[in-house]
Design a protein around this nucleic acid. Structure first.
Lengths: 209, 209
DNA sequence: GAGAGATTTCAATCATTTCTGAAATAGTCG
DNA sequence: CGACTATTTCAGAAATGATTGAAATCTCTC
Protein backbone atom coordinates (compact mmCIF):
# COMPACT_ATOMS: atom_id res chain seq x y z
CA UNK A 1 0.00 0.00 0.00
CA UNK A 2 1.90 2.98 -1.26
CA UNK A 3 1.81 6.47 0.14
CA UNK A 4 -0.02 8.57 -2.38
CA UNK A 5 0.47 12.22 -1.49
CA UNK A 6 -2.52 14.25 -2.49
CA UNK A 7 -3.11 17.85 -3.21
CA UNK A 8 -5.67 19.64 -1.04
CA UNK A 9 -7.98 19.66 -4.06
CA UNK A 10 -7.82 15.89 -4.26
CA UNK A 11 -8.40 15.58 -0.56
CA UNK A 12 -11.39 17.84 -0.77
CA UNK A 13 -12.81 15.78 -3.61
CA UNK A 14 -12.27 12.54 -1.73
CA UNK A 15 -14.00 13.96 1.31
CA UNK A 16 -17.04 14.92 -0.71
CA UNK A 17 -17.06 11.52 -2.35
CA UNK A 18 -16.93 9.80 0.98
CA UNK A 19 -19.80 11.94 2.20
CA UNK A 20 -21.82 11.08 -0.86
CA UNK A 21 -21.15 7.41 -0.34
CA UNK A 22 -22.26 7.63 3.23
CA UNK A 23 -25.41 9.48 2.27
CA UNK A 24 -26.24 6.92 -0.38
CA UNK A 25 -25.68 3.95 1.94
CA UNK A 26 -27.78 5.53 4.63
CA UNK A 27 -30.57 6.42 2.25
CA UNK A 28 -30.62 2.87 0.97
CA UNK A 29 -30.93 1.51 4.46
CA UNK A 30 -33.62 3.99 5.39
CA UNK A 31 -35.82 3.00 2.52
CA UNK A 32 -35.62 -0.64 3.55
CA UNK A 33 -37.00 0.36 6.93
CA UNK A 34 -40.07 2.25 5.87
CA UNK A 35 -38.54 5.71 5.94
CA UNK A 36 -38.47 7.77 2.79
CA UNK A 37 -35.11 7.69 1.09
CA UNK A 38 -34.85 11.45 1.00
CA UNK A 39 -35.53 11.83 4.67
CA UNK A 40 -32.78 9.39 5.48
CA UNK A 41 -30.44 11.18 3.11
CA UNK A 42 -31.07 14.55 4.69
CA UNK A 43 -30.33 13.06 8.09
CA UNK A 44 -27.17 11.44 6.74
CA UNK A 45 -26.01 14.68 5.17
CA UNK A 46 -26.52 16.66 8.37
CA UNK A 47 -24.83 13.99 10.42
CA UNK A 48 -21.79 13.48 8.26
CA UNK A 49 -21.05 17.12 7.57
CA UNK A 50 -21.56 17.87 11.24
CA UNK A 51 -22.31 21.50 10.62
CA UNK A 52 -25.58 23.40 10.45
CA UNK A 53 -26.97 23.65 6.91
CA UNK A 54 -29.84 25.70 5.58
CA UNK A 55 -32.60 24.56 3.27
CA UNK A 56 -30.79 25.82 0.20
CA UNK A 57 -27.59 23.97 1.08
CA UNK A 58 -29.57 20.78 1.36
CA UNK A 59 -31.55 21.33 -1.83
CA UNK A 60 -28.37 21.92 -3.71
CA UNK A 61 -26.34 19.09 -2.29
CA UNK A 62 -29.10 16.50 -2.56
CA UNK A 63 -30.67 17.94 -5.72
CA UNK A 64 -34.17 17.99 -4.32
CA UNK A 65 -36.94 20.54 -4.48
CA UNK A 66 -37.62 23.14 -1.86
CA UNK A 67 -40.89 21.49 -0.91
CA UNK A 68 -39.28 18.14 -0.44
CA UNK A 69 -36.49 19.60 1.66
CA UNK A 70 -38.93 21.48 3.82
CA UNK A 71 -41.08 18.42 4.45
CA UNK A 72 -38.17 16.14 5.17
CA UNK A 73 -36.68 18.59 7.63
CA UNK A 74 -39.99 18.99 9.35
CA UNK A 75 -40.34 15.23 9.67
CA UNK A 76 -36.83 14.89 11.08
CA UNK A 77 -37.61 17.59 13.62
CA UNK A 78 -40.73 15.66 14.60
CA UNK A 79 -38.65 12.55 15.05
CA UNK A 80 -36.36 14.57 17.27
CA UNK A 81 -33.15 13.67 15.47
CA UNK A 82 -32.24 17.14 14.21
CA UNK A 83 -32.59 20.58 15.69
CA UNK A 84 -32.85 24.15 14.50
CA UNK A 85 -29.97 26.57 14.65
CA UNK A 86 -29.48 30.18 13.65
CA UNK A 87 -26.63 32.23 12.40
CA UNK A 88 -26.55 35.81 13.51
CA UNK A 89 -27.17 38.28 10.80
CA UNK A 90 -28.83 35.62 8.68
CA UNK A 91 -32.56 35.26 8.45
CA UNK A 92 -32.41 31.70 7.24
CA UNK A 93 -32.96 28.74 9.48
CA UNK A 94 -30.19 26.21 9.81
CA UNK A 95 -30.46 22.59 10.85
CA UNK A 96 -28.05 20.29 12.57
CA UNK A 97 -28.11 16.62 13.40
CA UNK A 98 -27.69 15.16 16.83
CA UNK A 99 -24.03 14.11 16.83
CA UNK A 100 -24.45 11.26 19.29
CA UNK A 101 -25.23 8.13 17.31
CA UNK A 102 -26.79 6.36 20.26
CA UNK A 103 -29.07 9.26 21.05
CA UNK A 104 -30.09 9.41 17.46
CA UNK A 105 -31.13 5.78 17.32
CA UNK A 106 -32.77 5.98 20.70
CA UNK A 107 -34.97 8.72 19.33
CA UNK A 108 -35.77 6.63 16.29
CA UNK A 109 -36.59 3.60 18.40
CA UNK A 110 -38.84 5.65 20.63
CA UNK A 111 -40.77 7.12 17.74
CA UNK A 112 -41.18 3.83 15.96
CA UNK A 113 -42.45 2.13 19.06
CA UNK A 114 -44.89 4.94 19.61
CA UNK A 115 -46.11 4.97 16.05
CA UNK A 116 -46.16 1.32 15.18
CA UNK A 117 -45.93 -1.02 18.11
CA UNK A 118 -48.24 0.83 20.47
CA UNK A 119 -51.13 0.90 18.01
CA UNK A 120 -50.58 -2.76 17.22
CA UNK A 121 -50.65 -3.59 20.89
CA UNK A 122 -53.85 -1.61 21.24
CA UNK A 123 -55.45 -3.53 18.38
CA UNK A 124 -54.37 -6.86 19.78
CA UNK A 125 -55.81 -6.04 23.16
CA UNK A 126 -59.03 -4.92 21.60
CA UNK A 127 -59.30 -8.08 19.56
CA UNK A 128 -58.44 -10.18 22.55
CA UNK A 129 -61.03 -8.49 24.72
CA UNK A 130 -63.66 -9.00 22.12
CA UNK A 131 -63.07 -12.68 21.55
CA UNK A 132 -62.56 -13.13 25.25
CA UNK A 133 -65.86 -11.64 26.29
CA UNK A 134 -67.89 -12.97 23.47
CA UNK A 135 -66.33 -16.32 22.92
CA UNK A 136 -64.76 -17.75 25.99
CA UNK A 137 -63.51 -17.22 29.48
CA UNK A 138 -60.40 -19.27 28.81
CA UNK A 139 -60.19 -21.56 31.81
CA UNK A 140 -61.86 -18.84 33.81
CA UNK A 141 -63.29 -18.72 37.29
CA UNK A 142 -66.95 -18.94 36.39
CA UNK A 143 -66.43 -22.27 34.74
CA UNK A 144 -69.29 -24.71 34.61
CA UNK A 145 -71.93 -22.06 34.46
CA UNK A 146 -71.19 -21.43 30.78
CA UNK A 147 -74.22 -22.06 28.57
CA UNK A 148 -74.19 -25.68 27.32
CA UNK A 149 -71.26 -26.05 24.95
CA UNK A 150 -72.99 -27.67 22.08
CA UNK A 151 -69.79 -27.79 19.99
CA UNK A 152 -66.66 -28.89 21.82
CA UNK A 153 -64.61 -28.79 18.65
CA UNK A 154 -65.39 -25.14 18.09
CA UNK A 155 -64.72 -24.47 21.74
CA UNK A 156 -61.23 -25.92 21.37
CA UNK A 157 -60.50 -23.90 18.25
CA UNK A 158 -61.47 -20.78 20.09
CA UNK A 159 -59.29 -21.60 23.05
CA UNK A 160 -56.34 -22.23 20.79
CA UNK A 161 -56.98 -19.01 18.96
CA UNK A 162 -56.92 -17.14 22.23
CA UNK A 163 -53.72 -18.84 23.25
CA UNK A 164 -52.01 -17.76 20.04
CA UNK A 165 -53.28 -14.25 20.44
CA UNK A 166 -51.93 -14.23 23.97
CA UNK A 167 -48.48 -15.39 22.88
CA UNK A 168 -48.29 -12.60 20.38
CA UNK A 169 -49.52 -10.13 22.94
CA UNK A 170 -46.96 -11.22 25.49
CA UNK A 171 -44.23 -11.01 22.90
CA UNK A 172 -44.99 -7.43 22.01
CA UNK A 173 -45.43 -6.47 25.61
CA UNK A 174 -41.96 -7.76 26.34
CA UNK A 175 -40.56 -5.87 23.40
CA UNK A 176 -42.36 -2.77 24.56
CA UNK A 177 -40.96 -3.12 28.07
CA UNK A 178 -37.47 -3.75 26.71
CA UNK A 179 -37.53 -0.69 24.54
CA UNK A 180 -38.77 1.40 27.44
CA UNK A 181 -35.68 0.32 29.32
CA UNK A 182 -33.45 1.38 26.50
CA UNK A 183 -35.19 4.56 25.64
CA UNK A 184 -36.34 6.22 28.79
CA UNK A 185 -33.61 7.42 31.12
CA UNK A 186 -31.41 10.31 30.17
CA UNK A 187 -28.79 8.75 28.00
CA UNK A 188 -27.25 5.60 29.27
CA UNK A 189 -29.70 2.72 28.99
CA UNK A 190 -29.22 1.46 25.48
CA UNK A 191 -25.51 1.93 25.11
CA UNK A 192 -24.70 0.39 28.45
CA UNK A 193 -26.99 -2.57 27.98
CA UNK A 194 -25.66 -3.25 24.53
CA UNK A 195 -22.09 -3.04 25.68
CA UNK A 196 -22.83 -5.31 28.60
CA UNK A 197 -24.60 -7.85 26.49
CA UNK A 198 -21.79 -8.10 24.01
CA UNK A 199 -19.04 -8.05 26.61
CA UNK A 200 -17.01 -11.18 27.39
CA UNK A 201 -18.98 -11.60 30.59
CA UNK A 202 -22.00 -12.61 28.59
CA UNK A 203 -20.02 -14.97 26.42
CA UNK A 204 -21.43 -18.01 28.17
CA UNK A 205 -25.00 -17.01 27.39
CA UNK A 206 -24.90 -17.43 23.66
CA UNK A 207 -22.01 -19.37 22.29
CA UNK A 208 -21.96 -19.15 18.52
CA UNK A 209 -21.41 -22.22 16.49
CA UNK B 1 -70.71 -6.61 31.60
CA UNK B 2 -73.53 -9.10 31.04
CA UNK B 3 -73.20 -12.69 30.02
CA UNK B 4 -74.33 -12.90 26.45
CA UNK B 5 -74.91 -16.51 25.53
CA UNK B 6 -74.10 -17.12 21.90
CA UNK B 7 -75.10 -19.69 19.40
CA UNK B 8 -72.30 -21.66 17.78
CA UNK B 9 -72.96 -19.68 14.61
CA UNK B 10 -72.31 -16.44 16.43
CA UNK B 11 -69.20 -17.83 18.01
CA UNK B 12 -67.92 -18.95 14.66
CA UNK B 13 -68.57 -15.53 13.20
CA UNK B 14 -66.80 -13.85 16.08
CA UNK B 15 -63.81 -16.09 15.65
CA UNK B 16 -63.51 -15.23 11.99
CA UNK B 17 -63.89 -11.56 12.81
CA UNK B 18 -61.15 -11.77 15.39
CA UNK B 19 -58.90 -13.50 12.88
CA UNK B 20 -59.58 -10.81 10.32
CA UNK B 21 -58.80 -8.14 12.86
CA UNK B 22 -55.54 -9.80 13.70
CA UNK B 23 -54.60 -10.16 10.06
CA UNK B 24 -55.38 -6.51 9.39
CA UNK B 25 -53.38 -5.28 12.37
CA UNK B 26 -50.43 -7.42 11.43
CA UNK B 27 -50.55 -6.38 7.80
CA UNK B 28 -50.61 -2.76 8.84
CA UNK B 29 -47.57 -3.21 11.00
CA UNK B 30 -45.72 -5.13 8.34
CA UNK B 31 -46.13 -2.43 5.77
CA UNK B 32 -44.65 0.11 8.18
CA UNK B 33 -41.53 -2.03 8.38
CA UNK B 34 -40.76 -2.43 4.73
CA UNK B 35 -42.52 -5.74 4.22
CA UNK B 36 -45.32 -5.95 1.72
CA UNK B 37 -48.72 -5.84 3.31
CA UNK B 38 -49.83 -9.06 1.66
CA UNK B 39 -46.82 -10.98 2.81
CA UNK B 40 -47.47 -9.95 6.38
CA UNK B 41 -51.12 -10.86 6.02
CA UNK B 42 -50.36 -14.31 4.74
CA UNK B 43 -48.05 -14.88 7.67
CA UNK B 44 -50.70 -13.59 10.05
CA UNK B 45 -53.34 -15.84 8.56
CA UNK B 46 -51.19 -18.92 8.81
CA UNK B 47 -50.19 -18.06 12.33
CA UNK B 48 -53.60 -17.28 13.71
CA UNK B 49 -55.44 -20.21 12.15
CA UNK B 50 -52.66 -22.50 13.25
CA UNK B 51 -53.46 -25.09 10.65
CA UNK B 52 -51.88 -25.83 7.29
CA UNK B 53 -53.58 -24.01 4.42
CA UNK B 54 -53.18 -24.44 0.69
CA UNK B 55 -52.77 -21.71 -1.89
CA UNK B 56 -56.45 -21.69 -2.72
CA UNK B 57 -57.47 -21.30 0.91
CA UNK B 58 -55.22 -18.30 1.17
CA UNK B 59 -56.35 -16.76 -2.10
CA UNK B 60 -59.93 -17.06 -1.04
CA UNK B 61 -59.55 -15.84 2.50
CA UNK B 62 -57.34 -12.88 1.63
CA UNK B 63 -58.92 -12.16 -1.77
CA UNK B 64 -55.66 -12.10 -3.60
CA UNK B 65 -54.56 -13.53 -6.91
CA UNK B 66 -52.85 -16.85 -7.38
CA UNK B 67 -49.65 -15.18 -8.48
CA UNK B 68 -49.55 -12.96 -5.47
CA UNK B 69 -50.22 -15.85 -3.12
CA UNK B 70 -47.51 -17.92 -4.73
CA UNK B 71 -44.94 -15.16 -4.50
CA UNK B 72 -45.77 -14.26 -0.94
CA UNK B 73 -45.54 -17.86 0.17
CA UNK B 74 -42.24 -18.25 -1.57
CA UNK B 75 -40.90 -15.16 0.16
CA UNK B 76 -42.08 -16.38 3.55
CA UNK B 77 -40.38 -19.70 2.95
CA UNK B 78 -37.18 -17.83 2.11
CA UNK B 79 -37.49 -15.90 5.33
CA UNK B 80 -37.86 -19.20 7.12
CA UNK B 81 -41.04 -18.31 8.99
CA UNK B 82 -43.35 -20.84 7.35
CA UNK B 83 -42.88 -24.41 6.17
CA UNK B 84 -44.40 -26.77 3.67
CA UNK B 85 -46.74 -29.56 4.66
CA UNK B 86 -48.64 -32.24 2.79
CA UNK B 87 -51.91 -34.03 3.25
CA UNK B 88 -52.00 -37.60 2.15
CA UNK B 89 -54.12 -38.23 -0.86
CA UNK B 90 -53.95 -34.59 -1.81
CA UNK B 91 -51.62 -33.32 -4.44
CA UNK B 92 -51.72 -29.76 -3.21
CA UNK B 93 -49.05 -28.21 -1.08
CA UNK B 94 -50.01 -26.85 2.30
CA UNK B 95 -48.21 -24.25 4.36
CA UNK B 96 -48.02 -23.68 8.05
CA UNK B 97 -46.50 -20.97 10.18
CA UNK B 98 -43.97 -21.50 12.88
CA UNK B 99 -46.10 -21.45 16.03
CA UNK B 100 -43.37 -20.12 18.30
CA UNK B 101 -43.56 -16.35 18.27
CA UNK B 102 -40.00 -15.91 19.45
CA UNK B 103 -38.63 -18.23 16.81
CA UNK B 104 -40.60 -16.37 14.22
CA UNK B 105 -39.18 -13.00 15.14
CA UNK B 106 -35.71 -14.41 15.54
CA UNK B 107 -35.91 -15.55 11.95
CA UNK B 108 -37.10 -12.14 10.87
CA UNK B 109 -34.34 -10.41 12.79
CA UNK B 110 -31.73 -12.69 11.28
CA UNK B 111 -32.91 -12.08 7.73
CA UNK B 112 -33.16 -8.36 8.14
CA UNK B 113 -29.70 -8.11 9.59
CA UNK B 114 -28.36 -10.18 6.74
CA UNK B 115 -30.15 -8.21 4.06
CA UNK B 116 -29.90 -4.70 5.36
CA UNK B 117 -27.38 -4.18 8.12
CA UNK B 118 -24.60 -6.34 6.73
CA UNK B 119 -24.51 -4.54 3.38
CA UNK B 120 -24.61 -1.19 5.15
CA UNK B 121 -21.72 -2.24 7.32
CA UNK B 122 -19.83 -3.33 4.24
CA UNK B 123 -20.40 0.04 2.58
CA UNK B 124 -19.33 1.91 5.67
CA UNK B 125 -16.13 -0.07 5.92
CA UNK B 126 -15.42 0.51 2.29
CA UNK B 127 -15.97 4.22 2.60
CA UNK B 128 -13.89 4.34 5.72
CA UNK B 129 -11.03 2.46 4.15
CA UNK B 130 -11.04 4.76 1.21
CA UNK B 131 -11.00 8.01 3.14
CA UNK B 132 -8.57 6.51 5.57
CA UNK B 133 -5.97 5.51 3.02
CA UNK B 134 -6.33 8.46 0.79
CA UNK B 135 -6.98 11.19 3.26
CA UNK B 136 -5.52 10.58 6.63
CA UNK B 137 -4.01 8.26 9.15
CA UNK B 138 -6.11 9.72 11.93
CA UNK B 139 -3.65 10.43 14.74
CA UNK B 140 -1.61 7.56 13.43
CA UNK B 141 1.82 6.22 14.28
CA UNK B 142 3.65 7.61 11.30
CA UNK B 143 2.85 11.15 12.29
CA UNK B 144 5.22 13.85 11.27
CA UNK B 145 6.25 12.16 8.06
CA UNK B 146 2.97 13.07 6.37
CA UNK B 147 3.54 15.27 3.32
CA UNK B 148 3.42 18.92 4.42
CA UNK B 149 -0.12 19.69 5.45
CA UNK B 150 -0.74 22.79 3.51
CA UNK B 151 -4.28 23.14 4.84
CA UNK B 152 -4.77 22.43 8.52
CA UNK B 153 -8.43 23.39 8.38
CA UNK B 154 -9.15 20.78 5.79
CA UNK B 155 -7.10 18.31 7.74
CA UNK B 156 -9.33 18.88 10.77
CA UNK B 157 -12.50 18.50 8.75
CA UNK B 158 -11.25 15.21 7.46
CA UNK B 159 -10.35 13.97 10.90
CA UNK B 160 -13.77 14.88 12.20
CA UNK B 161 -15.40 13.20 9.27
CA UNK B 162 -13.51 10.03 10.03
CA UNK B 163 -14.48 10.22 13.66
CA UNK B 164 -18.15 10.46 12.78
CA UNK B 165 -17.85 7.59 10.37
CA UNK B 166 -16.19 5.54 13.07
CA UNK B 167 -18.95 6.25 15.59
CA UNK B 168 -21.52 5.04 13.14
CA UNK B 169 -19.43 2.03 12.32
CA UNK B 170 -19.02 1.10 15.96
CA UNK B 171 -22.71 1.54 16.55
CA UNK B 172 -23.69 -0.86 13.82
CA UNK B 173 -21.02 -3.31 14.82
CA UNK B 174 -22.44 -3.39 18.32
CA UNK B 175 -25.94 -3.89 16.96
CA UNK B 176 -24.64 -6.63 14.73
CA UNK B 177 -22.94 -8.37 17.65
CA UNK B 178 -26.03 -8.00 19.79
CA UNK B 179 -28.27 -9.51 17.21
CA UNK B 180 -25.85 -12.38 16.74
CA UNK B 181 -26.24 -13.10 20.41
CA UNK B 182 -29.98 -13.16 20.12
CA UNK B 183 -30.21 -15.02 16.92
CA UNK B 184 -27.56 -17.68 16.78
CA UNK B 185 -27.90 -20.45 19.34
CA UNK B 186 -30.72 -22.91 19.13
CA UNK B 187 -33.59 -21.15 20.74
CA UNK B 188 -32.92 -19.45 24.00
CA UNK B 189 -30.92 -16.31 23.41
CA UNK B 190 -33.48 -13.70 22.68
CA UNK B 191 -36.27 -14.79 24.93
CA UNK B 192 -34.03 -15.27 27.92
CA UNK B 193 -32.19 -12.02 27.45
CA UNK B 194 -35.41 -10.11 27.04
CA UNK B 195 -36.92 -11.68 30.10
CA UNK B 196 -33.79 -10.98 32.10
CA UNK B 197 -33.58 -7.41 30.98
CA UNK B 198 -37.13 -6.66 31.93
CA UNK B 199 -37.03 -8.56 35.18
CA UNK B 200 -37.04 -6.71 38.53
CA UNK B 201 -33.33 -7.40 38.88
CA UNK B 202 -32.64 -4.87 36.17
CA UNK B 203 -34.98 -2.32 37.73
CA UNK B 204 -32.07 -0.23 38.98
CA UNK B 205 -30.53 0.09 35.54
CA UNK B 206 -33.28 2.10 33.94
CA UNK B 207 -35.63 3.85 36.30
CA UNK B 208 -38.47 5.40 34.36
CA UNK B 209 -39.56 8.88 35.20
C1' DG C 1 -48.13 47.99 7.95
C1' DA C 2 -45.73 47.45 3.45
C1' DG C 3 -42.04 45.12 1.42
C1' DA C 4 -38.67 41.34 1.19
C1' DG C 5 -37.34 37.25 2.13
C1' DA C 6 -38.07 32.57 4.15
C1' DT C 7 -41.00 28.70 4.86
C1' DT C 8 -45.00 25.79 4.33
C1' DT C 9 -48.64 23.72 1.87
C1' DC C 10 -50.77 21.04 -1.58
C1' DA C 11 -52.72 19.61 -6.17
C1' DA C 12 -50.60 17.60 -9.97
C1' DT C 13 -47.07 14.70 -11.66
C1' DC C 14 -43.75 11.22 -11.52
C1' DA C 15 -41.61 6.90 -9.76
C1' DT C 16 -41.77 2.74 -7.42
C1' DT C 17 -43.86 -1.09 -5.59
C1' DT C 18 -47.33 -4.41 -5.59
C1' DC C 19 -50.77 -7.18 -7.83
C1' DT C 20 -53.05 -9.60 -11.47
C1' DG C 21 -54.04 -13.10 -14.81
C1' DA C 22 -52.82 -15.83 -18.22
C1' DA C 23 -49.18 -18.50 -20.27
C1' DA C 24 -45.31 -21.49 -19.26
C1' DT C 25 -43.44 -24.99 -16.42
C1' DA C 26 -43.22 -28.74 -13.25
C1' DG C 27 -45.06 -32.75 -11.22
C1' DT C 28 -48.14 -36.92 -10.75
C1' DC C 29 -50.82 -40.78 -11.95
C1' DG C 30 -52.57 -44.45 -14.77
C1' DC D 1 -46.10 -41.29 -22.78
C1' DG D 2 -50.38 -38.23 -22.25
C1' DA D 3 -53.92 -36.17 -19.53
C1' DC D 4 -54.47 -33.61 -15.70
C1' DT D 5 -53.50 -30.72 -11.68
C1' DA D 6 -50.56 -27.74 -9.15
C1' DT D 7 -47.09 -24.10 -9.19
C1' DT D 8 -44.20 -20.44 -10.94
C1' DT D 9 -43.22 -16.67 -13.79
C1' DC D 10 -43.69 -12.28 -15.71
C1' DA D 11 -45.45 -8.37 -18.70
C1' DG D 12 -48.57 -5.06 -18.01
C1' DA D 13 -52.30 -2.76 -14.87
C1' DA D 14 -53.34 -0.76 -10.59
C1' DA D 15 -52.19 1.17 -6.34
C1' DT D 16 -49.32 3.51 -3.47
C1' DG D 17 -45.91 6.68 -2.21
C1' DA D 18 -42.61 10.42 -3.20
C1' DT D 19 -41.51 14.79 -5.44
C1' DT D 20 -42.18 19.03 -7.60
C1' DG D 21 -43.23 23.87 -8.14
C1' DA D 22 -45.88 27.57 -7.60
C1' DA D 23 -49.10 29.94 -4.63
C1' DA D 24 -50.21 30.95 0.12
C1' DT D 25 -48.57 31.96 4.55
C1' DC D 26 -45.57 33.49 7.84
C1' DT D 27 -41.86 36.67 9.88
C1' DC D 28 -38.90 40.08 10.02
C1' DT D 29 -37.38 44.90 9.33
C1' DC D 30 -37.77 49.52 8.64
Amino acid sequence: MRETPQSPEDQKRSLVEAQDGFIAAFGQMGSAWGISRTMAEVQALLYITGEPLCTDDIMERLRISRGNASMSLRALLDWGVISRAHKRGDRKEYFQADQDVWDMFRAILRERMKREVDPLLASLHEIRDKTNTELAGKSDAGRGKRPRDDDPELRQKIDEHNARLDSMLRFFETIEALSQKFVSPAGRGLKIAATLLTSPLMAGGGRER
